[in-house]
Every structure is written in structure tokens, then in C-alpha cells.
Amino acid sequence: MNFLQSLLGAVRPPEWVVDEMQNRVVLFLNHVLMQEKAAQDRLRRQKAKPVRIQWGDFHLTLAPTAAGLLERCLPEATPELRVTLTQTSPLAVAQSLLSGQKPGVDIQGDVQLAAEVAWLVDNVRWDVEEDLSRLVGDAPAHTLARMARSAAEAVKAFAGRWPPRSSAAAPDPAPSTPPPADGPAA
């Protein structure tokens, strides 16, 4: 597993890929925010206050707009709030999220802005089923969403059991078949 982590740490996408991915993240976040008027109202109150989100070498600085959405800031913008994921392993972060826990974070800066960001994290959710229904209709969207929830529950259950517990204290079960006879088979 250390080899996989070191490999993931050594692989760096080109700068244009990182830039485009950050643009897509902002578009997605704004799509979700546009469905939540209360979230937009909260963001309007924090207009133009940069928030830097960092995980290892990857970072993204966003600021709320007058419309209650988010925009990327210039690289030289001084953040008023810094949110740093303290878990460096992608596997550990995924395991935390899949088991329903929040990954470890270090938050420094404007307390009111931090409270608004915490409220957003706790209360704003992407309504996948609603977006799917616009594409395929209500009934198929409901069926797909139900199947996705079942799959997510199965993954959560699996992640909750990982890594496997040591069975050193438990005795080995008896073999299910008797050992072979020493003589020739009849």
C-alpha cells in the first residue's frame, strides 16, 4: 500500500489539467448552490472573502460572489480562511467518506466565514435524483437513485470492515475434508 501511495504522490497531472478540473469543480459547486436559496443567502453575506482549500500539493481558492455563488480567485489572493485536509492518504480520505465520517481538517482564519462554510458542508447536498429526472424522467431516475443508494450502502459496509480485523486470537477452523489416506486409492 505504501508503494501505491508513493506512486500517487509522484504522479502529477499537467497544469492545464489541474486548471480545467478546478473550473469543473467550481461549475459543479455552483450548480448545487443554485438549488439552495438559503446557501446562496449565506454566501452573499461573505462576498469576496477568499477561502483556500488545500490537500497536500493541491489547492483551490474560492470566494463567494454577490450572487451567492463561488468564483475562483487569482493566485495572489490572500485567503481569509484556510481549510486543510490533514489526512494525506487518498485511501484514508475515501475510507472516511465512505464510512460516513468527515476527513480530518485544520481550519484557520475568519470565524464567521468558517461557520458559514461548516453550515454549507453540513446542510447542502446534491440532489442527484432531481438532476437525473431531467434527463431520463422521474421513474427511471428514482430506480437508478435507489440502486445507487443500495450500492453506496454496500460500499459503506465494506469500508467499515476494512482493514480486516486480525484473527490471531481465534483458533483456525477444523478442515472440512479429512486428510488423504496414505495407501493407494481403491
Rank of each mutant, 00 (worst) to 15 (best):
K37Q: 15
K37H: 10
A38V: 09
A38S: 15
A38H: 12
Q40S: 04
R42Q: 14
L43K: 08
R45F: 03
K47A: 13
K49A: 09
P50Q: 05
R52Y: 00
R52A: 10
Q54D: 06
G56A: 08
H59D: 06
P64N: 07
L69K: 08
L69Y: 09
E71P: 03
E71G: 11
L74Q: 13
E76K: 08
P79W: 01
L85A: 09
T88W: 03
P90Q: 07
A92T: 12
V93M: 06
V93K: 04
Q95N: 09
S96G: 06
L98Q: 10
S99V: 01
K102L: 14
V105K: 06
Q108C: 06
D110Q: 08
V111G: 04
V111P: 01
L113I: 06
A114P: 06
A118Q: 15
L120N: 04
V121I: 14
V121S: 04
N123W: 02
D131L: 07
D131T: 13
L132E: 09
S133R: 11
P140K: 03
H142C: 03
A145T: 03
R146C: 06
M147P: 00
V155G: 00
A157Y: 02
R161F: 03
P163M: 08
P164G: 01
R165E: 14
S166D: 12
A169F: 04
